[in-house]
Amino acid sequence: MFDLIKARARHGYQAIPDPLTVSIHEKFPGRPDLSDKADLSELNILCPNSAFTDRGLDLGKCLFCGLCEREHPDWIQFNPDFKLAADSREKLIIAPGQTRMPEIAAIGNGVFKRSFAMRNVSAGGCNACELELGASTNVNFDILRYGVEIVASPRHADALILTGPISKHMAEALCDTWQAIPKPKFLILCGACAISGGIFAASSELDRGFLKHWQACLYIPGCPAHPLSIVHGIHQLMGAK
């Protein structure tokens, strides 16, 4: 008993007081600053995942591996800004000179602002996004404080949060789970794999047909997505204050 009290006392208070305004360690590679002088086609040749387009850097493909920054620090610098989520695929492309992500449109006219239930489906990923999604509920990040819950049954869910690039063998189970969620329902894509196939995009073992039928309302970049990016994105999506 006294052992436990001692352990608890030493643990102290570890929750991040406000995960929306906290500053993260400067080493964290978040929103990139892309210089006007950057040669995007040269950066694209360098990029292991071909994440650069002629319009900028696609955060939906970016693995945040830092290779471009290490080779060309004058062209691109990653900031420790974890607010990376966007409400459309287009908005994930960071243009040269862009200094922040666009606002995220809230869903449901305020209905979800104090309560939002999500069902996770892991489909062919590497378990890093799953661990980070789990971590967003731990004592440090504590997404539950905003009324967000990760539920066991799709019947109890408002949204499906997908991690992984959707392997062929998970395509059916993903559809079944989605069908089991009552309307209105929302789709959230968490991590580079879910958004674009990520590092596995070229694999013949994927079946991303599900995403042709259903439109996501939130895209959370990262490889894996950081818990703070997840908390921020979902908080904005709910329209919480």
Binding site: G125, P165, S167, H169, M170, I199, F200, A202, S203
Partner: peptide, 22 residues
């Protein structure tokens, strides 16, 4: 097998010395 996504095949596509992320 639900997580099978062809890692060993992907290792053979492109430059083998640039497969850290994979």
């Amino acid at each position: 097998g639900y997580q099978h996504r062809g890692v060993e095949e992907l290792m053979l596509k492109g430059d083998i010395t640039r497969k850290c992320s994979l």
